[in-house]
Design a protein around this nucleic acid. Structure first.
Lengths: 251, 251
DNA sequence: GGCATTGGTTGATCTAGGTCAAGGTCTGGT
DNA sequence: ACCAGACCTTGACCTAGATCAACCAATGCC
């Protein structure tokens, strides 16, 4: 495609044309030259469920975003205590421009496809294309907000509130939500094992299991199988989560 | 001291000439025009210890950075449980470009001087001056890292480890460190009450008090008065903090 | 100087959640 | 069909930290 004159506000997305979710993607109004420079270095990688994408401390020479599946960022202490510090859903960004080595373990929780860019060219484009950096700033600020909400959860919520919060958080970001919500109830498929939930919430997996059972017994949620959850009354769940600010979403 | 000619390679900082700490400030290599645009909207505000700078949910039409003193970001649940989610030391940035209302209570823990810019002009400058956004991205990424370290602390560390971690964190950012370190021991003045510490750490203030006493009894720290702490062996403190990655600082 | 207030310590007791242990259920492989 | 292994649940018991309460030491105010 030949470069035409000054295009009228082209909204292009760095990651790729194929990535289904655009609204949170690293996006830019790039001209063709910029786009092609990125396209050159773009590539896809797939990971199987359970596979580690990068180990904390390892050299990480790419950045990217999750196209499909779910990955986590986790910190580990010497004695093995683990705390999840990031939950990466499709469209989320991975990697830090300007950093050499990974600061956290990145693990594929389900099968994951990622859209990657080698870091060096990406950084070059960031330096020359303000849009990219601006979008990245926006996304990083969102992540910081999420981290702070998460800190309240870790520091002050009870186990029951933590579980309710997690279910609400996942429900809010789950695509299935929009469909099911209109039918009066919210349905979620938990993409995490009980152990992963415990690492997210700062609990043991036994406590997670018990509190899920308790919420079921009290009618806050219904469970089919292990992972499929029906929320008959979302407001009730929010109440159980003890959320003050509900993330400004869906209430 | 009279102002001399145009300094070579102007590294100017948005916040102001007076702000003592420059390395973490929102900095830019601005030309004179850009600088003057910012100068126009710059102003200082002082707050007394204990005073609330902004309430969560309030309109916040400025951004700024801490010049002196210490402020905190805190989240509160309906029933009054409180969790600190940000500790703002001199040079730290406050406020989120692109957001209308404050998401957290901002409280001056000590007397605080802040260097502020009205948000609208600041955002305009961000849009036209890439350096500013780039610096802000860098700072936000640092904050995100700090938040994730904090999440590990909240989710997995024992009360004793939390206290040791907090002392280490403050010591690392304390200016007095450099002097004292060279003399073989590290000296810190805790800028927080026991209650503020408990809100930082997700503990009660009684537990904070007890664990500080315990660390003193075990010789990890020495205490003069209530707030003045001497760390005879910083490595020992780090060990007590259970830190895996020690923030890449001072070890 | 007396007294209230704020910030801190310490003790006694209670409990939410951790730990240890025994099963249960599902899935895939042979 | 049987088995192994991952994943989950539930029970019994224990402990770190919360809660409740008394008290101490500065500081500021009249």
């Amino acid at each position: 495609m030949p470069k035409t004159s000054i295009a009228p506000a082209k909204f292009t997305h760095i990651q790729c044309g194929a990535c289904p979710i655009r609204h949170r993607a690293v996006c830019a109004r790039c001209d063709d030259q910029e786009l092609s420079r990125l396209e050159e270095t773009k590539y896809y990688r797939s990971y199987e469920a359970g596979q580690t994408v990068v180990w904390s401390g390892d050299r990480m020479d790419f950045v990217g975003s999750v196209v499909s599946g779910i990955a986590t960022l986790t910190q580990t202490m010497e004695d093995g205590r683990r705390q999840m510090v990031g939950l990466l859903l499709p469209s989320d960004f991975v990697g830090r421009p300007g950093r050499e080595t990974a600061a956290y373990d990145v693990v594929a929780t389900t099968d994951v496809v990622m859209c990657c860019f080698r870091k060096k060219p990406f950084e070059d484009i960031m330096a020359t294309t303000p849009h990219v950096g601006q979008r990245l700033l926006e996304m990083t600020l969102d992540e910081l907000d999420a981290a702070r909400e998460w800190m309240l959860l870790l520091g002050r919520k009870t186990a029951r509130e933590k579980i309710a919060s997690l279910i609400a958080i996942i429900a809010r970001r789950d695509a299935s939500l929009k469909l099911a919500k209109s039918e009066g109830q919210v349905v979620v498929d938990l993409p995490l094992t009980r152990e992963a939930m415990s690492e997210y919430l700062g609990l043991t997996l036994e406590t997670v299991s018990r509190q899920i059972s308790a919420l079921r017994k009290d009618g806050v949620i219904e469970i089919e199988g292990k992972r499929h959850i029906i929320i008959p009354d979302f407001d009730r769940l929010i109440e159980e989560a003890g959320d003050d600010s509900d993330g400004g979403f869906l209430v």
